Amino acid sequence: MSFENILIDIQEHIGLITINRPKKLNALNKATIEELHEAFKNLEEDPDVRVIIITGAGEKAFVAGADIAEFANFSVYEGSQLAAKGQELLFNLIENLSTPVIAAINGFALGGGLELAMACHFRVASDHARMGLPETSLGVIPGYGGTQRLPQLVGKGRAMEMILTAGMIGTEQALMSGLINHMVAQEQLIPFCEKIAGKIINNSPVAISSAIASINAGFGSNGYRKEIEAFGECFGTEDFKEGTTAFLEKRKADFPGE
């Protein structure tokens, strides 16, 4: 498997995916999402791969959000399609993959990056990682499942606070709230994930696949469809235009509230 934006390494039944856009802090653009889709599908079909680990290149960022320049001028329809296609191609795909996926959060996991990590079956973070959903500071809402998966992981109140303040939290708070399963030193991140993967590999692949499907069944709802609609509607607001323009111009947004 050869890709432009990601790296794949398979060893001892573990498939390691590294998002390799360090100059862009591994931000998710359309091409990267499509490559990740193909990589996950290929790894799931490989009988030698029993666990998948996903991380980001370098020590600064897991994924520092989506590539905002790609969608700053989208219409309501295009915004809705962006969320719907992204959820179908990648985020829902990962959540429902029969092969366990571990997110190894090696730095900033913001916006789409945190949504990517939350779509994984569980998360391990380095002790200097920072996580958040800053979308409301851009005049939009999380559109890749963030409004649904974050409350499932940390509870409604904490999710409300994180999303409405658009703030970031550190690894210790993420650990206490249940957003991540483990916190480790940066140099131990991948080895620690591989150690957990080794324990999973010792168990029945059929039973693991059934367990994933059964656990996910308890969280099914129409919330993701509502998120897609609301995400798209944000693209028709003056607040969205101001928020994305301010971000790209590297200034503070002055939202008109309309």
Rank of each mutant, 00 (worst) to 15 (best):
A64W: 02
D67E: 11
G65Q: 08
D67V: 12
N73R: 08
K41G: 04
N29I: 13
E34V: 13
V51D: 00
A69K: 14
L36S: 05
A61S: 15
A64S: 15
L36R: 07
K41Y: 12
L36V: 05
E34Y: 08
H37I: 02
F40I: 08
A72I: 15
I54L: 02
N73G: 08
D48V: 08
N73C: 10
F62E: 02
V49I: 09
I52P: 01
V51F: 02
E70C: 07
T55Y: 09
P47F: 01
T32I: 06
A66W: 06
A31E: 14
G65F: 06
G65R: 07
I33P: 07
K41E: 09
I54H: 06
A69W: 05
A66S: 10
V49K: 05
A57K: 14
I68D: 12
I53S: 02
F40W: 02
A69M: 10
I33D: 04
V49C: 14
D48M: 10
A72R: 14
A66C: 05
V51H: 01
F40E: 01
E45V: 00
E38S: 10
E35F: 08
N42Y: 06
K41R: 10
A39L: 11
E38C: 07
I33A: 08
A31K: 05
T32G: 05
D48N: 15
F71M: 11
I68M: 12
V63N: 02
T55R: 05
F40A: 02
A72G: 13
E34H: 12
A61F: 09
A66N: 13
A64C: 09
E70I: 03
D46S: 07
E59W: 11
I53H: 04
I54D: 02
E59S: 15
A69H: 09
F62D: 02
G58D: 12
V63S: 04
I53K: 02
G56K: 08
G58M: 09
A31H: 03
A64Q: 07
E70S: 15
I54F: 07
I53D: 01
L36D: 03
I68L: 13
A72M: 13
E70V: 05
K60Q: 13
E38H: 12
V63K: 04
A61K: 07
G58Q: 06
V49A: 09
A72H: 15
T55D: 05
F71I: 03
K41H: 12
I68R: 13
E35P: 10
R50K: 15
I33W: 04
E45M: 14
T32H: 05
T32A: 09
A64T: 05
I54N: 00
I53F: 00
E59K: 15
F40M: 03
A57I: 12
D48W: 06
E35A: 07
I33S: 06
F74N: 11
E44G: 07
I52H: 04
E70G: 06
E70H: 04
F71Q: 01
V63T: 07
A72D: 15
G65A: 03
E38L: 13
F62A: 00
L43T: 07
I52L: 08
E35S: 03
E45S: 14
V51N: 00
F71E: 02
E44K: 04
F71P: 02
A57H: 12
D46A: 01
R50A: 11
I68A: 14
D46G: 04
I54M: 10
N73Q: 11
A69V: 12
E70Q: 12
D67Y: 13
E34N: 09
R50E: 14
